[in-house]
Design a protein around this nucleic acid. Structure first.
Length: 799
DNA sequence: AGCACGCCGACT
DNA sequence: GTCGGCGTGCTC
């Protein structure tokens, strides 16, 4: 008698292990490993994942039976189940959180509890609970104590009953279609007997005779056959309605087929090396290091083509904001319908359909962002990560996985190469390539040997000393003017990481702050509001200072909105487009702005980081960076790396075609190595310099790091608990491990909670993982007194 | 995470 | 005495 081992959807330490369930005779040949099932759990019903079917009983108590399957087919295969296990250990997360992360967002489902009223009188007496409805979803959090008490009494009295049902999740898109219910001969007979005025009926019967397969109702409508005619025919038994499944098509535009381009020597060498690794099923990791414009994408495409030729599949991962129609169009024009796309701006339904196309094997190439690394591809021939250094590859919530590590795990599972591509590789990756752990492939030349753009650094300290109080330096202003005259395009970028416009009282120096968080409010002119970017708190822009009542409130800092205004004022005839979080919030807005700009409907594109990456506008000949160094001031060991990356990338946006490019970088730190080396696009020199800094500071890649975050509403409690954690670590870890903190986070208070952190730096620490797992298990006890503990293995920042 | 059980104080 | 507060422990 088989027993199902089930991981239930209850993310706690005590339930982080399989629970055994019996399988009734009816379900015996249905339940499979990798399926989700609905199971009784205590008094409740919950969803769980079947991770094993076994004949030997390990649980000594009496088994309960699985209630019903949630999936008809396994949603996770053996590989992805194993991946979840590894990920749980690697990220110090519960297995259930990893399983839920691996399945596509739209398919996640929970067992929800519903209350059904048996006696109508209950409704009038408890209108605050049932709101006149005979069935409601039971959400304990939304009910107060007296309501809960009343419900439990009603349940006891049998006036109300409870039942569980699954929350809605994405399903196949179905459309209503009609199908003839009678033979063609029969239909002709009916047609002959029709009265002369029944034109629609006649057309409908004609249509049914023509087509053996179901006809979509929308198609019928095109033939002027209305729903009422169909309804009548259905009643008379001439036709039946059927539901047909339809795949949504996330690709908006048709594409023309493209052919492989001719490669230069370096590209050809890279393709050949990777291909031979694919053909020999070698699990080798490559670093494809290529300056902007060196043709990395063509290398990817040809390598993918080779994998397909070998009868294998391929995965191309790209950062969030790079997944533009531009790159997708290029892939699709080469591989057509075989490409499946996974992107967060797609609807739940679209993503579900793409997932199904991958799972069924009809899509062989997956292009997507972070979460696409979990795509259910079988027989993978190559995994490519473009812009491997990009920070969007690290998930900043539980489970805090690094896509690169997942990609490498899958590469090992499938015995296939993993290609990490970048113009500015992360130091971790570059260092491994240096040690020979990864194989380094270099594309040092730009295609057609285009010159790199000329980069000018403007010292803003001197500008200000020279009497200017503008955000735009004299040299940037004159460059803009020249380019506008020549009808060439301009990109102005604001490095706005943690930097935006806020309000200051010029009389007393008061700055409006968020009541829930330890941070200044940001001014949004279009809404006339002050907003907190951490908790979403908003308040109207005050007319008077809260503290002294003065009306001398001044907007400080540089937001992209303000920059757009300034540019409009200085260049009234220029057409300006703005791209930032505010203007791209709506679905498709991002693509629309890019399209407008590439069709030259605007002269100047103003925006934040998001304009730095992956975009290719041939007519752009000037790129201005307004404040190159705001990132440098962060108390974070990666701030130089981030600044260098960003500047190198924006600089690469200028002058890609026949026109020479010009880049102007404004900064208050003109001597900083990150800025000077970005000027010459000298990654290798930056790498050597930064490695010395990392070595001296005992930072990655010389040391491994873990960040532990402790938070609670009461600050004293947080401090006490932080020291308790510190104590525990000091007792368990080797003395040569470096433990920093506890220190308050840079933004100490967010959403009424205080945050403290401890950083562990180590080179070898065999007891670390058990110590941290222990900490995770204790987190349960601490949570009871409102203390939350989070563990981030290899964090992206120390902030 | 829920949800029940169980052990104390203050009330019809 | 009982109702209802919350601390404790379990869920196959």
């Amino acid at each position: 008698m088989p027993i199902a081992q089930v991981i239930v959807d209850v993310p706690t330490a005590q339930t982080n292990t399989p629970y055994s369930y019996g399988i009734s005779d009816q379900l015996l040949d249905i339940i499979q490993v990798g399926m989700r099932v609905l199971v009784p759990f205590g008094r409740r019903q919950v969803v769980g994942f079947v991770v094993e079917l076994t004949d030997n009983q390990t649980f000594s108590g009496k088994l309960k039976n699985i209630i019903a399957p949630v999936d008809l087919q396994p949603i996770l295969n053996e590989e992805l189940l194993q991946l979840a296990q590894w990920m749980a250990a690697d990220t110090y997360s519960f297995l259930i959180s990893c399983l839920q992360t691996i399945i596509p967002g739209g398919m996640r489902t929970k067992a929800k509890k519903f209350l059904t009223v048996a006696d109508e009188t209950v409704l009038t007496d408890n209108n605050d609970i049932f709101h006149g409805q005979s069935q409601i979803e039971y959400v304990a959090k939304a009910l107060d104590k007296s309501q809960l008490k009343r419900i439990s009494r009603l349940l006891q009295q049998g006036l109300v009953s409870e039942h569980y049902s699954l929350s809605n999740h994405a399903h196949q898109l179905t459309q209503t279609a009609i199908k003839a219910a009678k033979s063609e001969v029969k239909l002709t007979e009916i047609q002959d007997k029709l009265p002369n005025n029944a034109k629609a009926q006649w057309r409908l019967l004609e249509l049914l005779k023509q087509s053996a397969s179901p006809i979509l109702q929308t198609e019928a409508a095109k033939q002027k056959i209305t729903g009422s005619a169909i309804k009548l025919a259905e009643e008379k038994g001439w036709l039946t309605k059927v539901q047909v499944t339809k795949n949504r098509n996330p690709f908006t535009s048709a594409v023309t087929k493209s052919e492989p381009l001719t490669l230069n020597l370096e590209q050809a060498n890279a393709v050949q090396t990777i291909n031979s690794s694919i053909n020999q099923d070698e699990n080798q990791t490559f670093l494809l290091e290529g300056v902007t414009g060196s043709g990395k994408t063509e290398v990817y495409l040809q390598v993918i083509a080779n994998a397909l030729q070998q009868g294998e599949t391929a995965m191309l991962l790209v950062p969030e904001i790079t997944l533009t129609p531009q790159i997708v169009g290029r892939i699709r024009s080469r591989f057509g319908e075989q490409v499946a796309m996974m992107h967060s701006s797609m609807s739940v339904g679209e993503r579900f359909d793409e997932w199904r196309r991958i799972e069924s094997g009809s899509a062989k190439v997956v292009v997507g962002v972070r979460s696409a690394v979990f795509a259910p591809l079988a027989n993978i021939g190559v995994i490519i990560m473009d812009e491997e250094h990009d920070s969007s590859y690290k998930q900043e919530e539980n489970p805090r996985y690094q896509t690169r590590d997942v990609a490498k795990w899958r590469g090992a599972y499938h015995n296939c190469p993993v290609v990490l591509g970048s113009a500015t590789p992360s130091l971790e990756t570059r260092a491994r390539a240096g040690k020979g752990v990864y194989q380094r492939l270099v594309l040092a030349h730009r295609i057609n040997d285009q010159a790199l753009p000329e980069v000018e650094i403007v010292d803003m300290k001197q500008e200000i000393a020279g009497g200017s109080d503008s955000d735009l330096s004299a040299s940037l202003l004159s460059a803009i003017k020249t380019k506008l005259q020549r009808h060439e395009q301009i990109i102005l970028m604001l490095n706005r990481r943690g930097y935006s416009s806020f309000v200051l009282c010029r009389n007393c120096g008061f700055v409006p702050k968020c009541p829930n968080c330890d941070i200044s409010l940001t001014y949004h002119k279009d809404l006339g509001q002050l907003q907190c970017h951490y908790c979403g708190f908003t308040r109207p822009m005050p007319h008077k200072c809260d503290q002294c009542g003065s009306t001398k409130l001044r907007q400080l800092g540089m937001g992209s909105q303000k920059l757009e205004e300034t540019v409009n004022r200085l260049f009234p005839t220029a057409r300006v487009l703005r791209m930032d979080v505010d203007t791209t919030r709506k679905k498709g807005a991002h693509e629309r702005i890019i399209k407008q700009f590439s069709e030259q409907q605007a002269d100047i594109l103003v925006g934040t980081q998001m304009i730095a990456k992956g975009l290719d506008f041939p007519n752009v000949t000037l790129v201005g960076v307004l404040n190159a160094d705001t990132g440098l001031e962060f108390p974070d060991f990666r701030s130089s790396e981030r600044t260098f990356e960003l500047l190198t990338q924006v600089a690469g946006r200028a002058g890609r075609a026949d026109k020479a490019g010009q880049v102007i970088i404004q900064t208050f730190n003109p001597d900083h190595y990150a800025i000077l080396l970005a000027q010459t696009q000298n990654y290798e020199e930056f790498y050597r310099t930064e490695m010395k800094v990392r070595h001296a500071g005992k930072y990655p890649p010389y040391y491994f790091t873990v960040k532990i975050t402790i938070s609670a509403e009461n600050e004293k409690q947080v401090i006490a608990q932080s020291f308790a954690v510190l104590n525990q670590l000091q007792q368990r870890l080797a003395p040569n491990a470096v433990i920093l903190g506890p220190t308050p986070k840079v933004i100490k208070r967010i959403n009424r909670r205080y945050y403290y952190q401890i950083i562990i730096k180590y080179r070898q620490e065999p007891t670390l993982s058990t110590t941290l797992t222990e900490l995770l298990n204790q987190a349960q006890q601490r949570a009871k007194s409102g203390i939350q503990i989070g563990i981030d293995n290899e964090p992206m920042d120390f902030m």
